[in-house]
């Protein structure tokens, strides 16, 4: 479904992503793990076209090079941004409806079913549908960010650090939701510093260091790999969740 070859992202002289190859198949959950500054977020931003990049990105058998981010969203490539990027002065429901804007623009007018689906996944959002997004807690905002992305009916959902800065209990809840999405067949590319949780959820994983893939394979194998255990699943790894 997604095939990336030779991806390179530079910020002026600094190379964030260097000759990166990866692929995601339909129905798969793929985890991208690695330390801070390994180029995980840059990879996702490049996939969406929000930063300039070199290399080839093919999605659903078609190249994405030169396609605007909005058009990629319309084609079902949807990102939950690390900083959530909600519309703070708007209500929960307005945020959710705007998530479906690309579909609305195409003429789809019946979004109630999608709203109900998101509210079923996140009952807390249903309770707060009239609350302003900015006034919610971090965990609720993360739920809203995921809910907004789901409103676009993603074919490939890109998630950037969904557990960042959240209390362990909320992290557990969010990963529970991701497990449900996976069971429903949603294809997910997940960037996460909480490697333990990510590799438990994922089918396959890539380990990034300094912008390159240093290790890849089925998630079950990565969980057993001594290098992964030492660097990402040990005491240090746990602390970053």
């Amino acid at each position: 479904m997604l095939e990336v070859r030779g991806l390179e992202v530079r910020y002026h002289a600094a190379v964030a992503v260097d000759d990166l190859d990866l692929h995601v198949e339909e129905g798969e959950v793929v985890a991208l793990i690695g330390p801070n500054g390994a180029g995980k977020t840059s990879t996702l931003l490049a996939l969406l076209g929000l930063v300039a990049c070199r290399g080839e990105i093919r999605y659903q058998e078609r190249t994405l090079n030169g396609i605007e981010p909005e058009e990629r969203v319309a084609r079902g490539l949807v990102l939950v941004h690390e900083r959530r990027q909600l519309f703070g002065e708007m209500t929960v429901e307005e945020n959710l409806l705007l998530g479906a804007f690309a579909r609305y623009k195409r003429g789809e007018r019946h979004l109630e079913g999608d709203l109900e689906r998101v509210y079923a996944l996140f009952p807390r959002l249903a309770e707060r549908r009239c609350q302003l997004a900015a006034t919610m807690s971090g965990g609720e905002q993360q739920m809203l960010a995921i809910g907004r992305a789901l409103m676009a009916r993603p074919r490939l959902l890109l998630l950037d650090e969904p557990s960042l800065g959240l209390a362990p209990l909320i992290v557990k809840e969010i990963f529970g939701i991701l497990r449900r999405l996976k069971a429903e067949g949603t294809t997910i590319l997940l960037v996460e510093q909480n490697a333990r949780a990510a590799l438990e959820l994922a089918d396959r994983g890539y380990v990034l260091e300094a912008g390159r893939v240093v290790l890849q394979g089925p998630a079950a194998e990565l969980r057993e790999d001594p290098r992964v255990i030492e660097h990402y699943l040990g005491i240090h790894g746990e602390g970053s969740g």
Partner: peptide, 10 residues
Amino acid sequence: VNRIGARLSG
């Protein structure tokens, strides 16, 4: 209010 958020929403 939020350009990036807008682009993420299509």
